[in-house]
Write a protein that binds this DNA or RNA. Structure first.
Length: 622
RNA sequence: GCCUCCGUAGCAUAGUAGCUAUUGCGUUACCUUGGUAAGGUAAAGGUCACGAGUGCAACUCUCGUCGGAGGCUCCA
């Protein structure tokens, strides 16, 4: 919808000739209205998705303008020339009729005839507020008043908060004894009361820069980060790890487009169920939105596939680089909350609720195991379960099972009716040093989209059925994993411990430091030898004193540091400084390799794409 | 999106309505050949975020824009 509001002394128009066959006849061809707000109006193609929302928004906008300029007479003037993508005349007429009816409740309203060539004269007042244009759609991004269906619905729905203990008993949050469960308390308070007392920048923001992992990119939109070589390595390792594990679990990896047609019949309906928070792209005459998850692509694939009950559960998987969510600018922070993020998304199509529940349980264990591999144990996360009352009443033991598995009390949110498309959902939340909580792993039982997307499988009797669909991100966003690891390291540092990343993610696993440049050759040989074992090794060939090189290695969080000189060259024994340990350890090369292999067992390996000689490395951050 | 605070060299910082804008790290050059967390000397490096306004004079005051942080709100 595009409108142009003109506060006018008068408007005079005359209907000359029908421009559309379908145009209704008019009884009064010529008309003059004085002291009015003329609203030139173009109804657009995209408005067809949700005419009622558009009417509501239109009335709101026009009312606001009319009140501002103190006009009590409004002229709705159909004016298709404002847009290059008009809606069908039928819908436009329908919308305009409704608009007129609504506006009449508060204003004197006239309208010019629809579908005619018209002659007109407008005398615009010319004061600063007298000419205003507005543009909006059912999905418009600066949609402040046209809240989506789901949002409005959510306001009405009551939710009940509880803590469930390991024995499956529900407690009121206020009455629960949180002793020994500090993080859960912080998380529960955070979720329920939305209380926050933070005045500092989160710790990981400084770390992500200092360690040359990631940085803000002023040349892009907010929440779209740049990743330096070390950050790319860490991301790539996490991506590989999670993808490999999902494939082991039975995931079938696909790749789907990052943008979708706004007017696709199925997608547009789905879109309307959520707040208008997506990026839009206009290309020629079509509008696209950037995906906020892999659901669309995977559902469209599933829609076209021939699926037998024997194939189920069918687990479709994609690592989305990127998913996009246009979060409000004030909500973005470092790597915690982004507008472009990398999210593994694994759906499972299941025959019925029973199979969905069975699979849901398998995946819950799977998520815990994924997070453990990433470096986040059960101690590091808090469980939240969101469930409809109806589902809970008849499936208590499932929720209890989730709590039992994590082995500590959890937050339960219960709704008296279903808001979104799911009946049960859990999240594993990380609570950071400032008591902020963010969801990592999550899974949902979706009872709606099988039908919405017309996804079918053939059952034993040869009949078509819609599957139940599980939506799971086993790790949550990769960037958020990095955020959690850095925040965890920062918390350890505050407790006087040495901050570090899991060794398999550490960019430099072995730093070789020659005592003088005399030993550079030896150092280089040793570096190559270790690197050949798939251990990320580099050596500090810069003309610096040993103490300084060690300091540099410590500041980079290198897992192990070797200082080598004459002693090592002769004895072939290495003095190894292991991060987090006070004393030096003497090892042979073989023992060192074994130590690293043991620490990184079963985790993927990738090379770091930087020169092994530190003197040849570009400094990306001061 | 709204409210509050912030933006000075690659990074981190000091400072003032007035003459050539601090300091540290890093960078470059030279000296130092050094054994487990900072060796020495020197040099280069700045449109004080951007734009407008007020003043004889603006990095400094005011407004706007952009970017960042925190709060509100939100998180499919």
């Amino acid at each position: 919808m595009k409108i142009l509001c003109l506060h006018s002394d008068y408007i005079e128009f005359e209907a000359k000739k029908k421009a559309l066959k379908s145009a209704p006849d008019v009884d009064q061809a010529k008309k003059k209205i004085e002291e009015c707000l003329v609203v030139l109006t173009s109804v657009e193609k995209r408005d067809e998705n949700d005419p009622d929302a558009i009417v509501e928004r239109y009335v709101k906008e026009v009312t606001a303008v009319a009140n501002e300029v103190k006009a009590d007479s409004i002229v709705v003037y159909p004016y298709v020339h404002l847009t290059s993508e008009p809606s069908s005349p039928q819908i436009a007429m329908d919308i305009l009729k409704k608009v007129e009816k609504e506006l009449k409740k508060e204003f004197k309203v006239d309208s010019s005839p629809f579908g005619y060539y018209k002659a007109f004269t407008i005398a615009c007042k010319g004061h600063p507020m007298s000419e205003l244009s507005r543009e909006f759609g059912p999905e418009s991004k600066d949609d402040c008043c046209g809240e989506s269906e789901a949002l409005k619905k959510e306001e009405k729905i009551k939710s009940y908060w509880h803590i469930m203990d390991v024995d499956g008993k529900l407690h009121e949050i206020d009455k629960f004894n949180f002793q020994g469960h500090d993080n859960l308390k912080k998380f529960a308070v955070y979720e329920k009361n939305k209380v926050r007392q933070v005045d500092k920048e989160p710790a990981h923001v400084a770390l992500m820069k200092k360690l040359e992992i990631a940085d803000y990119e002023p040349g892009s939109d907010a929440g779209n980060m740049r990743y330096y070589p070390k950050g790319r390595l860490i991301k790539s390792l996490l991506e590989t790890y999670i993808t490999d594990r999902v494939i082991d679990y039975g995931g079938v990896e696909v790749e789907t487009p990052i943008m979708y047609d706004m007017n696709h019949p199925t997608l547009s309906k789905y879109l309307q169920r959520f707040p208008a928070r997506q990026y839009q792209i206009d290309s020629d005459k079509r509008s696209f939105f950037l995906r906020f998850a892999a659901c669309f692509g995977q559902f469209l694939i599933a829609h076209d596939a021939t699926i037998s009950y024997k194939d189920l559960p069918l687990k479709l998987y994609e690592l989305t680089r990127y998913s996009f969510r246009r979060e409000q600018s004030g909500e973005l922070t470092g790597l915690r909350r982004l507008r472009a993020f990398t999210m593994p998304d694994c759906h499972a199509l299941c025959t019925d609720l029973d199979q969905a529940i069975k699979e849901f349980k398998i995946r819950y264990k799977f998520c815990h195991s994924i997070l453990k591999g990433v470096g986040l144990k059960k101690d590091d996360v808090e469980l939240a379960v969101r469930v409809t009352k109806e589902f809970y009443e008849s499936n208590k033991e499932i929720v209890e099972g989730l709590v039992k598995e994590i082995g500590k009390p959890a937050l339960i949110e219960m709704w008296d009716q279903r808001i979104f498309y799911f009946i049960l959902k859990y999240e594993l939340n990380f609570v950071d040093g400032m008591n902020k909580a963010s969801a990592l792993s999550t899974d949902q039982i979706d009872v709606e989209n099988g039908e919405r997307y017309d996804i079918n499988y053939t059952d034993k009797e040869g009949k078509k059925n819609h599957p139940h669909i599980l939506h799971c991100s086993p790790s949550g966003a990769i960037e958020r994993n990095i955020y959690a690891l850095l925040e965890k390291a920062a918390m350890q540092q505050n407790q006087g411990k040495t901050p570090m990343l899991p060794m398999w993610l550490t960019p430099t696993q072995i730093r070789v430091i020659p005592v003088t440049d005399e030993f550079n050759k030896f150092a280089q040989g040793l570096t190559e030898e270790l690197a050949a074992e798939n251990i990320r090794t580099d050596f500090d060939d810069r003309e610096l004193h040993v103490g300084k090189k060690i300091r540099a290695a410590e500041k980079e969080w290198c897992s192990t540091v070797l200082v080598i000189g004459e002693k090592e060259q002769k004895s072939k024994k290495l003095n190894v400084r292991i991060r987090g340990k006070k004393d030096l350890v003497v090892m042979s090369v073989k023992e060192l390799i074994e130590h690293i292999k043991k620490e990184t067992a079963d985790m993927p390996y990738k090379r770091l794409s930087l020169p092994r000689e530190l003197s040849k490395r570009t400094i990306f951050v001061g």
